[in-house]
Design a protein around this nucleic acid. Structure first.
Lengths: 165, 165
DNA sequence: TATTGTTATACTCTATAACTATA
DNA sequence: TATAGTTATAGAGTATAACAATA
């Protein structure tokens, strides 16, 4: 079965046969898939009253382990969004009672963002649904394909400068 | 070499050993990579005074072949953005003199968007740089890995409802 | 001087809906 | 009634820069 990029590559082959546009077959699909997957992920989030940004913040705090606390700078590095977006996300999460902001002990400039009991309960409840949703999204791939895909994506990420922490 | 998702999966293994979060290894990497690749693509666009949305419109018109004309609805389907975004993109492209909007002959409600000579020259010039940039982004993969990646992504896209045209 | 977090600006996009002109 | 395109609203993100407090 053909996808949209099959159509696009066909058009380019006809219009610009001088150009090798095969890279588009990878990058174009990457872009479209990321969009479609994003839409699918929202379904599980909204079932818990969350959106992507909120889930991202709560999950990052959750997986950091007890006491479920990080600085805004740490959340920024993990989420790949700008500092302004982090401030706004935290404003909303704080208003909902899911996180607290307290001055850092060790750094007078710093702030520590921590999950409240309500925030912890929420992310603990949303997490299994999110993981099940991701499994559903990947259901068309074999175990081997999934492993191979993860490894190829990692190779690309490392080459583009992605790093742990 | 480790990437960010190696770190994330490690944290989840420690915090929620009851959950199989391996799907995150695929979907998380997909999301981060799409973001990083997007940033890299902008470099080639901005060298020609374009942004992602503008390049997207011009390239879609270009590959449709002579007379390089499509309806806003056609551009919307190809680009996966909302109708409001299309209207705004076309407003900007029209103001720059790169596309024209003329009433459709066959449908009184319709509009035909067409590349101007300037728009055609611009996209023809930008295209080889864009393709070279995509090749650079994928340089860390072998030919076989690229082909396999494209095929796996296509499989996922088709399963999620992506289709030609 | 540099860093932390917040605030501000202008812009692009989202989702949703209303609106017109036409089919 | 439905469709094509535009317009409008509120909200979340971008990039960039400025800012106060602290290191």
């Amino acid at each position: 079965m053909a996808d949209h990029l099959d159509f696009v590559l066909d058009q380019w082959a006809r219009e610009r046969p001088d150009l090798d546009v095969s890279a588009m077959g990878v990058i174009g699909r990457l872009s479209r898939l990321s969009r479609l997957v994003g839409t699918e992920l929202e379904k599980a989030f909204s079932a818990h009253g969350l959106d992507r940004g909120a889930f991202d913040m709560l999950a990052t705090l959750r997986r950091s382990g007890p006491p479920f606390a990080l600085t805004p700078a740490g959340l920024m590095r993990a989420s790949m969004v700008t500092s302004g977006a982090i401030t706004q996300r935290l404003d909303r999460l704080e208003a909902r009672g899911w996180v607290t902001r307290t001055p850092s002990d060790s750094d007078g400039r710093g702030v520590v963002v921590a999950l409240t009991d309500e925030g912890l309960a929420l992310i603990n409840a949303a997490l299994p649904d999110h993981v099940a949703n991701e499994e559903r999204i990947l259901a068309s791939l074999s175990t081997e394909q999934r492993a191979q895909l993860a490894e190829t994506l990692r190779q690309l990420l490392v080459a583009l400068g992605d790093s742990p922490a």
